[in-house]
Amino acid sequence: MARPQPVIERIAQAMGETLREARSDPRVSADTLAAMAQQWELGLHMRRPGFHPGYPMRSS
């Protein structure tokens, strides 16, 4: 892919919207929503320079 950044930004925007909408969706349990949000945050941290799985995340 020649320009992945715009695609990544659209995915991030869509996932943020999905998580916000899921808060008021009775089909999504609080536990499931918390797990989804936690994994999404982990994924966002993984794309940052200096991230190493298993090591504490450095603040940006």
Rank of each mutant, 00 (worst) to 15 (best):
I11S: 03
D31F: 15
P4Y: 03
Q13P: 09
S59P: 12
R20C: 08
P49S: 13
P6Q: 07
M57L: 15
S29R: 06
Q38K: 13
E21I: 06
L33W: 01
R47K: 13
A30E: 10
S29N: 04
M46P: 00
G43W: 10
G54W: 00
I8Y: 08
A30P: 04
L33Y: 00
P56S: 09
G50E: 10
H52T: 15
P53G: 06
S29G: 05
D31Y: 15
M15Y: 09
S24K: 04
L19H: 02
T32F: 01
M57T: 09
A14Q: 08
A12Y: 03
S59K: 12
T32C: 00
A2G: 13
A12C: 08
G54Q: 02
D31K: 15
E17A: 02
A35H: 04
P56K: 04
P4S: 03
Q13A: 14
M46R: 04
R48A: 14
P53A: 07
E41Y: 08
A22M: 05
M1C: 11
M1T: 07
A37I: 11
Q38C: 11
E9H: 13
S59G: 11
R27I: 08
R23V: 05
Y55F: 06
Y55I: 06
P4Q: 07
A2C: 14
P4T: 02
R10I: 03
H45N: 11
R48F: 14
V28M: 03
M46I: 02
L19K: 01
L19S: 03
H45C: 10
H52S: 15
S24F: 01
A35M: 01
E21W: 09
R23W: 05
R23D: 06
G54N: 03
P56H: 08
G16R: 08
R48C: 12
H52M: 15
P6L: 07
L33R: 00
W40P: 10
H52V: 15
I8F: 05
R20Y: 08
R10G: 04
E17F: 05
R47G: 15
R10L: 02
R20I: 09
M57E: 12
V7A: 12
H52Y: 14
P56C: 10
P6M: 05
L19C: 02
A37N: 11
A14L: 08
R20L: 13
A2T: 14
M1F: 10
A30C: 03
S29K: 06
